[in-house]
Simulated scan of single mutants.
Amino acid sequence: MASLDRGKFQDAWLVFAIFCAVTATVRRIGSCRIVLMQGQVLVENPLIVHSLPNGSIMDVEISSSGSLRIRTRPGKEIRPLAFGGSLVDTYFKTSERAATKIREYLRDNGREPAARTEGQQKFRRCWSADIALVLGCIAGTMATVFA
């Protein structure tokens, strides 16, 4: 506050830029999930969305560290960040419950080979994180202007 009293706005812009960067990071990590859709499974990690047709999924398993792994037919291994294995996960067994739900979904919805057996990857949009990141870049620019 003392620097604002002296007319130095650089600190305020810098604090706002850091706040926005932290907010963007927390939003991206906190919104990771697995979505079971008709005919496909979406794995939304912080930056990439993996779209996996049901026919491309070979196995869903838990690693020795407690993290969820999805093995696909082309031999790839997808590790959802949402179920990465943690201290909380060892107590609540969320990765094991997620694996069970995915297996049940695949069993109930069939795994017939689709025309497209290889999954797709694309950049994940997270508007709340992206807006915070843009605001943080603007604030960082303003901090350098007031330097």
Score class of each variant (00 low, 15 high):
Ala115Ser: 14
Ala99Cys: 07
Leu135Met: 07
Pro80Asp: 05
Ser67Glu: 12
Leu42Lys: 12
Ile34Asp: 08
Phe92Ala: 13
Arg79Asp: 10
Thr141Ile: 05
Leu87Lys: 14
Gly39Ile: 06
Asp130Lys: 08
Glu112Tyr: 15
Ala21Arg: 03
Ala17Leu: 07
Thr117Ile: 15
Asp5Ser: 11
Ile29Pro: 02
Pro74Asn: 08
Arg69His: 10
Arg73His: 09
Arg71Phe: 11
Lys101Pro: 07
Val35Asn: 13
Ala12Glu: 02
Ala115Met: 15
Gln120Ile: 02
Met58Asp: 15
Thr141Tyr: 12
Ala21Ser: 11
Ser63Gln: 14
Asn45His: 14
Asp59Leu: 09
Ala132Gln: 02
Phe123Pro: 02
Phe123Thr: 14
Ser86Cys: 01
Thr72Pro: 09
Lys101Met: 10
Ala147Gln: 05
Pro53Trp: 12
Arg73Ser: 08
Leu4Pro: 07
Leu14Lys: 02
Gly85Ile: 04
Arg71Gly: 06
Thr23Ala: 08
Ala115Gly: 15
Phe16Asn: 06
Arg103Ile: 03
Ile62Ser: 03
Arg116Tyr: 14
Arg97His: 02
Arg27Thr: 00
Ser31Leu: 11
Ser64Arg: 13
Leu47Ser: 04
Ser67Met: 08
Ile48His: 01
His50Asp: 10
Val134Thr: 12
Ala82Leu: 03
Ser3Cys: 08
Phe16Val: 00
Asp130Arg: 00
Phe92Cys: 10
Ala82Ser: 01
Arg6Ser: 10
Gln121Tyr: 02
Phe123Asn: 09
Ile18Glu: 04
Ile48Ala: 09
Val26Pro: 10
